[in-house]
Nucleic acid binder design. Structure first.
Lengths: 230, 230
DNA sequence: TCGCAATAACGAACGTTATTCATTTATGAC
DNA sequence: GTCATAAATGAATAACGTTCGTTATTGCGA
């Protein structure tokens, strides 16, 4: 008699605990990430997330404390993909390049997650402590004074996160359009761009140039600091 | 007879156009900025904004198209305070320091506006075209090739915006707390911080170090580019 | 100076949204 | 086998952004 009802697949599920688990935190987060990618941050509602999981909205609250909790899980899920392994193999100034690309790429792969900065503190968006431990170790091994290590890493993270924000921005706005005469220099450089760097690859080029410059500047700074100490 | 009603100040306002203007876009934006500073982004509602202006919510819609419009106005209002004047007086590599501090400071003065960047297209978040024209002019005068100017400026903006985001983030997260043994290096550097750099000034130090490093790296890059050309 | 369209307030209503709660059903430990 | 716990449904709620009809005032053209 139990089977009578369960065999009919398209039947609306009755109230009460289901015989096979349909929800848990991981599944909710995974579906949430998919929904977020599809619909963007403003299309991300608990109702749609529930529909995606073929469940009533209230069912979600047995596994997560609310919408913020889901978003928090998604952020963790995304930043877990950041690769810090190169710090084990190469010196800090080389490893940091791959790390930065991986960092920015993790968020760029899911653009709406970048927009989540608006709603929740960045703290969650940062890499985990285990990752920090790895990065910090590498910087100390490279000779950075302990009091400076965190500042330098935070500076790098700032640049990376800022670049991630930039990567999702539309760049047409910079084109002066009709106002060529009003902003002549701006007009010139936006035209020059389309010649040498084709397409909308400004964010990529900016990230690349900025990252190399930043690392080079830090290398110089480290030399200077070491000189001061002795 | 008209006065009979108007004299009583605490009277609830009757329907119909008021004899003296109480609302306009500027006043709404100004009150919006105050409310945003007080209540944060999640406490910013049209109802509360209306209450602040002693007006019914629907009255706002005679002057702004909606909430997004108000936020957009606030952003403009805030970024108008960015100072690009130094680019007229000094070479790019000097002027850029003051510009960056002014840029970050304008938003740091109103922390919740920083978070707004993510939620709405960055195009609006960027400085205005007039400012860009000024900055671009200075970089070209400094010898940067036209095809690189935009990338370099965007890289700088990315760092500045990322730093602004960082500046409002709580930094306790980085303290390993109980897990000193699990993350020994991280524990060491967080302790070293409190000795030399006292207080929670990591974001400030990170911004300073990062900015100098970035500019120095760009200076080197410019030299290299010039050498390649000849 | 009169008339009247435009302006700008109020107040009521609507559709969403996140969340809570009572109810129902299955699980799993004793 | 009993029963506390877990986990689903479904109904309900408050808050939010926005729209619309109504009303009162302004300011321009005749």
């Amino acid at each position: 008699m139990r089977q009578d009802r369960e065999v009919v697949e398209s039947d609306r599920r009755r109230a009460g605990r289901p015989t096979v688990a349909i929800l848990d935190r991981a599944r909710i987060v995974e579906a949430g990430l998919r929904l977020l990618d599809q619909s963007g941050i403003e299309g991300f509602t608990m109702a749609r997330l529930a529909a995606e999981l073929r469940v009533q909205p209230s069912a979600l609250y047995n596994h997560v404390s609310g919408k913020e909790d889901v978003l928090s899980g998604i952020r963790e899920r995304v930043s877990d993909r950041i690769d810090v392994s190169e710090f084990l193999l190469k010196p800090w100034n080389e490893a940091v390049i791959g790390w930065a690309y991986s960092y920015r790429g993790a968020f760029a792969a899911h653009p709406p997650t970048i927009a989540m900065f608006a709603i929740m503190p960045i703290s969650d968006a940062r890499i985990t402590m285990a990752m920090y431990e790895q990065v910090v170790t590498s910087f100390i091994a490279g000779g950075w004074p302990e009091a400076k290590v965190l500042s330098v890493i935070v500076a790098l993270e700032s640049f990376i996160l800022g670049s991630a924000l930039d990567a999702i921005a539309p760049f047409d706005m910079l084109d002066p359009g009709e106002d060529r005469t009003q902003f002549p220099q701006l007009a010139r450089v936006t035209l020059a761009r389309s010649d040498e760097i084709h397409g909308a690859e400004i964010p990529d080029d900016a990230f690349n140039e900025g990252l190399r410059a930043l690392v080079m500047g830090l290398e110089n700074r480290l030399v200077q600091i070491k000189a001061e100490k002795s």
